[in-house]
């Protein structure tokens, strides 16, 4: 014990300090992604953009979008859902390390598109977007609860809340991977 400790201490003393200003990322081959100066988003691999990626046919008519407080209300609900989920110990780890700027935008676009509020969805399809995230049904339930909280806080009537969930629920097969 004493010998090992002394030997370790001696080894540490003998070690040379690395040169100042070493580029450790280059040293270990770490690629650093740069956020887009305009959007603040990290780059993603190219994909074909299409509203079909939103995963469902949108509702027609303006009534439902109005129940969500229009485009502005939908944006706030999407952001609040992400915010609640990032603070939710059950699922926060899934969000850590992902681009929240991009998620806020694409989730808003998806909700806005599906609710017939006139947005286009520019994100990836559900299968690609959730690939290798290892999402479980329990994670999905947690997200649904957070979305319900966000909608409730925004005063969206429950039947209208369920109308949005009705569009999202059938996508579970593409999202849940384990």
């Amino acid at each position: 014990m004493l010998l090992t400790a002394t030997a370790s201490a001696a080894l540490m003393l003998l070690q040379q300090a690395p040169a100042e200003g070493t580029d450790w990322d280059a040293e270990f081959g770490v690629e650093v992604k740069q956020r887009d100066p305009v959007t603040g988003e990290l780059p993603v691999d190219p994909y074909e953009q299409s509203n079909a990626n939103a995963g469902a046919v949108p509702y027609e008519g303006a009534q439902l979008a109005e129940a969500f407080g229009g485009r502005e209300g939908i944006r706030r609900i999407a952001e609040r859902t992400v915010e609640l989920s990032q603070a939710d110990p059950r699922i926060a780890a899934i969000f850590a390390g992902h681009d929240m700027v991009r998620l806020n935008r694409t989730l808003n676009e998806q909700f806005c598109y599906l609710l017939g509020a006139g947005c286009d969805y520019s994100g990836r399809d559900m299968k690609t977007a959730h690939a290798e995230m290892g999402v479980t049904k329990a994670d999905l339930n947690a997200l649904v609860e957070n979305l319900q909280t966000a909608m409730r806080e925004a005063g969206v009537p429950f039947a209208a809340q369920n109308r949005l969930l009705a569009k999202l629920a059938p996508m579970s097969g593409q999202v849940v991977t384990r």
């Binding site: 090992t4 400790a5 370790s8 603070a87 110990p89 926060a92 969000f95 850590a96």
Partner: peptide
């Protein structure tokens, strides 16, 4: 003993954002 420690020393990098 340092040599008996399997784990590396604490990561000096701050934890990302405010993840719980």
């Amino acid at each position: 003993s340092v040599a008996e420690q399997d784990e590396p020393p604490a990561d000096p990098e701050p934890v990302l954002e405010t993840a719980p």
